[in-house]
């Protein structure tokens, strides 16, 4: 799965926690989940758990704390997927 494919799947993970879904149209790797997508911090753990299920990976808390932007989410998801193979 390349980075674009991960972004496409990540959008599905983020959508339930966004009030303005149109913001997803303009995302890039620098997009901040809280500041730019207006996701409430109370949903951050939900997003980590949903990402674990979506990609069949386990995200430890040292990694989870780095998942603040779309790019860092892709980095962590890629790392965890590669470590399985």
């Amino acid at each position: 799965m390349d980075r674009q494919e991960i972004i496409d799947e990540l959008k599905k993970v983020l959508t339930p926690y966004m009030e303005d879904k149109e913001l997803l149209g303009g995302i890039n790797e620098q997009t901040d989940l809280i500041k730019d997508l207006k996701i409430n911090s109370a949903n951050l753990v939900d997003i980590i758990i949903d990402a674990e299920s979506k990609y069949n990976i386990e995200i430890d808390m040292d990694s989870a704390e780095k998942m603040t932007t779309v790019g860092s989410c892709i980095d962590i998801i890629t790392e965890k997927m590669n470590s399985k193979t």
């Binding site: 409430n40 109370a42 753990v45 939900d46 758990i49 808390m61 989870a64």
Partner: peptide
Amino acid sequence: KATNQQRSIHPRFYSKI
């Protein structure tokens, strides 16, 4: 009301907090 009550009490959720 804006949180997922079922998920909040699941170990997979609260162990991350």
